[in-house]
Amino acid sequence: MSKLNVLLMGLVVVVLAGCNQSSSVTVHKPGVYKGASDPLLSANTEERATALSERFTMGQLDR
């Protein structure tokens, strides 16, 4: 086997190795939010939920 063939085979191995890919992804946990606080979070969420639900009925249904 010539050096060239060995080199070629080596190259093929290297190239083919690139074709192997894990079919799963890694998911990471987020860190703790470090930014300013959003007043939206402390607003009366129940009242807002009612308003948003009414709005949804008014606007997103075919009527």
């Binding site: 998911v27 990471h28 946990k29 987020p30 860190g31 703790v32 939010y33 470090k34 930014g35 959003d38 939206l40 979070l41 969420t45 939920a49 948003l52």
Partner: peptide
């Protein structure tokens, strides 16, 4: 999850 400065937050909704 990937943010290096942790600038994301999720509201109650």
């Amino acid at each position: 999850a990937v943010c290096p400065v942790d600038c994301f937050y999720t509201t109650d909704e």
